[in-house]
């Protein structure tokens, strides 16, 4: 997709790793086919309206009190730990596919959030966070004087 041309790699040989990172990031942003990695667990969807964003996250089997959500300015952080059943002696897992352990994700939001008005709920294993835009940050209509 957005592969670096050879001449560019030559000229900026020192920054190749950065370029590759950037390329990967850009490809990830522009492709909606499943190219997600483990870093992207739990997966989110982002929804937009004029004055707010909604972030939904599929994170089954959590206790609401074990999910930490924090908002600072335009950064949203969601973290938590998913626990496995504790097995007794002699009991064994035949299959282990579910994602357990500690997870943390940070998101850069497109605007400053009014952190006092953020609401979150957790239902059926889906986390739903409403992030209202800070009033002062809303676009202002400029009146044109004739």
């Amino acid at each position: 997709m957005f592969g670096p041309g050879i001449w560019r790699v030559k000229r900026f040989a020192d920054s190749v790793p950065e370029i590759m990172d950037l390329q990967r990031e850009i490809n990830r942003l522009f492709s909606n086919v499943g190219q997600n990695t483990a870093l992207d667990y739990p997966a989110i969807n982002v929804w937009e309206k004029d004055d707010s964003l909604v972030v939904t996250m599929e994170w089954p089997g959590m206790e609401p009190e074990n999910i930490n959500i924090s908002v600072t300015g335009a950064t949203l952080t969601i973290s938590g730990a998913a626990k496995a059943d504790s097995l007794k002696e002699g009991e064994i897992y035949l299959r282990q596919e579910r994602a357990l352990g500690n997870f943390q994700r940070n998101f850069q939001l497109p605007f400053q959030v009014d952190s006092k008005k953020v609401e979150a709920k957790y239902e059926k294993g889906i986390l739903n966070i409403i992030l209202p835009r800070l009033k002062e940050d809303l676009p202002k209509k400029i009146k044109i004087n004739s």
Partner: peptide, 22 residues
């Protein structure tokens, strides 16, 4: 759905992640 399955002496336990179902 991703599943964990474990076996005890008396039973099999199956745990399946299905976000969005009740």
């Amino acid at each position: 759905p991703h599943v964990d399955i474990y076996e005890t002496r008396d039973a099999l336990f199956l745990i399946a992640d299905m976000p969005g179902v009740d």
